[in-house]
Design a protein around this nucleic acid. Structure first.
Lengths: 337, 337
DNA sequence: TTGTAGGCGTTATCAA
DNA sequence: TTGATAACGCCTACAA
């Protein structure tokens, strides 16, 4: 039985109203009373019940985020940076982040979102890993539930979002490789359900087109954004009769897996073969050799997402409901320095 | 204005009591009525308000976890695996994980824990990165707040916890290196405020003692568990007049940083120098060369922590209030295969 | 400046 | 089998 506002009131022979207002900083309470109240509250270790306050204020003071877990080995530093960003921004606003896990596009995922929305468990939701036909945005918008997405979906082209111009980034990256003399450039992607795959592949093709290199489907492999999948896909590429001289990974993890495969093939990355990724996670900097990548500043991205969803919750007009960010190419040793 | 139980009751001309009990599966409601209620609830999209239920039931249905963030570059896969484990176990129990961030041992951290405890925001708390004098456990136990720690602290030697026998693990690791012919074995640790550092260093010394290798303080470096710090510390070690032939990192990230430094020094890891880590994160498997490490099964550890804290919340007796887990040495290429 | 009272949406007790 | 009613702990319009 924790301490309630009643206990404080009783102790001071005051009404709970006065206690409540003294603590909330209203100015219609005598300064002396306020001091007594504050002292008593501290002494008793009183803090307002979050739940009761929530019920009264009709707010949860929490933002929800569901991790797209795909089995026990969920080890993508993208998400630790992302969650750190969400958490830091939330903390600075006295909010919490409610985290859950579900396999992408599963029934469990759907149930989770519905539970959060219908039970008003969170005030808003942050979405990532958008899918081409993503019922999540559609559902949340239809429910008038505050939501911000990292990336877009065809199902709701007007949803509040932050989009990174990955297409331009990948085109730029291809150009960089072409300038280094590469013509046989492979790409290890992800499921084409994901818009990130659609965009990044398009950027890759843009880059080839600009350099007037014909597109060759045998240079396209598909992984699942994990390191092992990048490794496997790279092995397949390296075993082609005419293997590529450069491999682009849809994300850094994929590229790091590919680097591993190249090493095993006896190739020196950066000399015998070029490898590049996307995300700009810390690992890329300390890989052997350091990985050329496209930095999307995951951490600050996450903070911006929280800011946006808070603005929506507060019914503030969004300065930029659909932000487009230009990512930055970071050239490192893996593409020849 | 979301749908409340009243709306469902009105629609069916029933009392809210009946609706509530029909939905909660009580058996004192006519089966036919129950079906009608369920149908109406589904049709209206009703789900009980989580907040109201919390207030009534005096439970939050959430477990809290605070990430020890230390700046914007928080990129440790340990934590993405850990949170995935927390989340998966929580989801399977219809709970949520409330995540926040704070620098270890900061005023902000303290405020966060106090806020969660006093406002009853969560039902229980999971702690990691324990410190030798960790007020968190002491405070939570004193507040009779359900808590489980990953690791121990001197301030509360009887707290519910899961402990990994890292000391034995490190001794074992040193033995492995000695068997490979190493005598000059360095150790890159972390702040000695952390019990993990105390234990792992002790294990390292145990290992030396067993092999009758005198302890030499110049082989001890201190990092902060991050990759860059491992890199920097390794550089210092490699620049000694008599550099070590083997380097042990307090965790995998530190070891991976050290590997990077060794490479830069023109050394082939696994041949010219041995490097080993601790944690068993996925990166270690795909490093170049794969990293010898001590696997602590982060994911399942996290799940067990949630299980334990739930048992405490439910007032169930704990089978093992203080679990000790023996970690597993995984020998890979970085120590010569 | 302080107190009374109603209600936020549930669930639980008790009566019908 | 169902319904009226009283909490859970807080905030706030209104009254004193």
């Amino acid at each position: 039985m924790p301490i309630s506002i009643r206990d404080v009131a009783r102790q001071l022979n005051l009404s709970i109203t006065t206690v409540s207002r003294a603590l909330d900083g209203y100015d219609d309470v005598a300064e002396e009373t306020r001091q007594r109240v504050i002292a008593a509250a501290r002494e008793l270790g009183y803090a307002p019940s979050h739940t009761a306050r929530q019920l009264r204020r009709q707010r949860a003071d929490a933002i929800g985020y569901i991790l797209p877990t795909s089995g026990p080995r969920f080890s993508d530093p993208f998400f630790s940076e992302f969650i750190a960003g969400l958490g830091d921004e939330a903390t600075s606003r006295d909010l919490d982040i409610l985290v859950s896990t579900a396999p992408p596009d599963s029934a469990a995922e759907r149930q989770l979102y519905e539970r959060w929305v219908r039970s008003r468990r969170v005030d808003g939701i942050v979405l990532s890993r958008m899918r081409a036909y993503d019922w999540r945005v559609k559902y949340l918008l239809k429910s008038h539930f505050p939501v911000v997405a990292l990336g877009h979906t065809l199902l709701a082209e007007d949803a509040p979002q932050i989009e990174i111009n990955a297409r331009a980034g990948f085109a730029h990256l291809v150009q960089h490789l072409v300038e280094r003399g590469h013509r046989r450039i492979a790409y290890i992607g992800a499921s084409s359900d994901l818009t990130l795959q659609v965009d990044r592949l398009a950027g890759y093709r843009d880059g080839l087109a600009t350099a007037q290199i014909p597109f060759d489907a045998s240079w396209i492999e598909q992984g699942d954004l994990t390191r092992p999948s990048g490794y496997q896909a790279a092995l397949r590429l390296l075993n082609l009769s005419e293997p590529p001289t450069a491999i682009i990974g849809v994300n850094d993890l994929t590229a790091l897996g590919a680097m591993h495969a190249a090493h095993e093939h006896g190739l020196v990355v950066g000399r015998d073969i070029a490898v590049a990724g996307y995300d700009g996670i810390e690992d890329s900097e300390h890989a052997q050799p350091p990985l050329t990548t496209i930095n999307s500043s995951v951490y600050s991205l996450a903070r911006r997402l929280v800011k946006m969803v808070c603005a929506i919750v507060a019914n503030e007009p969004l300065a930029e409901p659909r932000t487009l960010i230009e990512p930055e190419l970071i050239v490192r040793g893996s593409t020849g320095g």
